[in-house]
Design a protein around this nucleic acid. Structure first.
Length: 200
DNA sequence: TGAAGGATGATCT
DNA sequence: GATCATCCTTCAA
């Protein structure tokens, strides 16, 4: 079933990040459906999280999407090269978001391969946030799109992971965030080959 | 108007 | 493991 709006309105973005492990992310972009199982996420906990773009209640044209009601896509450019896909959560005015760092490809693998310009399929096809966005055709054009739209959505297909199989740890690439860089806001499926860097 | 820097990934060694 | 590609956003003046 497609996750309903209510799923995204919870105030506990860390719990949502954990729960999204094993859910399925799909896109229907440029006439092609691609998607797979989410195997790695990170929580960004609003205005008190130094690693978040919205830290200190910073509302700018870019971060505005995070302040909208949950259940939307927040897509931005990083390092001038990579686009990253986040799921906005919580009520309007509360800028919570979950970064999707890796998925296990299931549908439209050939399309992903083409988008990624890969001659052979390797686990890196969807490992890492920049790779996920590129493989699924996600760009800044879908920023602020509803996750209840027919272009991008998340499904619960009944997959469940025990806590023993879901590891937590500090988030990647947020050393600038001081003590907040140490928060265990990263979740990933233990040993899954599609998880970026440390996957154990 | 300008300067600094970033929620990364591919490639090479 | 080190390097680099590459450009938008932000903030200060």
């Amino acid at each position: 079933m497609i996750l309903p709006l209510s799923y995204y309105l919870s105030n506990d973005v860390v719990a949502i990040s954990r729960d999204l492990i094993g859910k399925y992310l799909f896109t229907n972009i440029d006439g092609a459906v691609t998607g797979g199982m989410i195997v790695e996420t990170e929580a960004y906990n609003g205005i008190i999280d130094k690693a978040s773009h919205a830290f200190g209640n910073r509302r700018t044209p870019r971060t505005q999407t995070m302040f909208e009601e949950g259940g939307r896509a927040y897509v931005y450019l990083c390092y001038g090269i990579h686009e990253m896909f986040n799921i906005v959560t919580a009520a309007e005015g509360t800028p919570h978001a979950v970064l999707i760092r890796a998925v296990q490809p299931e549908v439209g693998v050939d399309i992903m391969q083409f988008r990624r310009n890969m001659t052979i399929v390797k686990p890196t096809i969807t490992a890492g946030p920049g790779s996920v966005a590129k493989a699924l055709g996600i760009s800044r054009k879908v920023n602020n799109y509803s996750l209840l739209s027919n272009a991008i959505w998340v499904e619960d297909r009944g997959v469940r992971f025990n806590d023993d199989d879901v590891k937590t740890g500090p988030r990647i690439g947020v050393a600038y965030a001081g003590e907040d860089a140490l928060l265990p806001y990263r979740f990933f499926v233990k040993g899954n080959p599609y998880v970026s860097k440390p996957n154990k």
